[in-house]
Amino acid sequence: MVTGSSGAGTKFFGPATQTARLMLYGLLAIVLMAMDQRGHYVASVRSQVAYLAEPVYHVMEWPVRAMRNVFGQMQSRRSLRQENTALKEQLLSQQGALQRLATLAEENHRLRALIEGAEGQAFEYQFAELVRVDLDPFSHKVMVDRGSSDGVEAGQAVIDGAGVMGQVEDVLLHFSTIRLISDPNHALPVQINRTGLRTVAFGSGVTGVLKLPSVPRQADIREGDLVVTSGLGDRFPGGYPVATVTAIDRQEGQTFVLVEATPLAALDRGREVLLIDSPAPKVDEQPLPDQLEAGDGEKASGDEQGGQEAEEPESAEVDSLEGEP
């Protein structure tokens, strides 16, 4: 078809054929878009073909990487020293805070174990850097430099230093794309930290705004409230900060209030992110009814859990904590 129409071919066919071909291609494009939007077929084909795109990203990223290296070399000794001392101070103060947190976490583990709760496990983090390739601004995606060769899997939660960023969507060999929480099709199960009110945060299509459309009118919610992940839905582990509530619109006669929140993570200007390795699915850790009766049963479930996640060092610690008293 391409050879038939190349050359001076189009001239002889006249505008009618040309219009027909426009219609054909236009229709094809619209069908493709609809399929991609609905998530039929196209998504899987796309993730296969994306492997071909990988070399392109490597090439595109190279000059930026080189430039960053050059600037890194040029940074003076003095500024490096200053940065070093500043970072050391920061590390020390955060270590201090962490010490306290560690005891709290242990206490929390113990209490959770008592009530057979499923939350409070430790997660493993994987460091990744954003790839400096600009994807389509309307796609609400970013790319990081870890892929299937580093053990990244689709669906992993992604955070940065301040809060939740999104989740891994397509995994290539050395790259993966992340769908940001600002995507209008992205829904995130959250709760209000102050009151424990559970709801869902939707992206709005604008980087700086999340929408919480299903908060009832009578609900106790204020501006400045911290929104954290609730851990429902099994994708995102609970307790990670997501956003702060910035605007509440209580309209007369409406069942729900319109709540807007600003994401804490630097969605469009961050550089380093963490991929969260979630441990085994939470379903496994639900205690069986007969195990609830005696303390022995509780231990048995703990051991079982340890066996299932042999690579998780944390569950072994929980066991030893339980043995202590």
């Binding site: 493709l32 196209v42 073909v49 994306a50 389509d136 796609s139």
Partner: peptide, 27 residues
């Protein structure tokens, strides 16, 4: 050098690389 078929394929390529809705740039 340019015809509708090529434009379509170039658009698809752009969609794949840029992560936009498949067919957007093609159209």
């Amino acid at each position: 050098l340019v015809n509708l078929g090529k434009a379509f394929i170039i658009g698809l390529l752009l969609d794949l690389l840029g992560g936009s809705l498949l067919g957007l740039h093609a159209l």
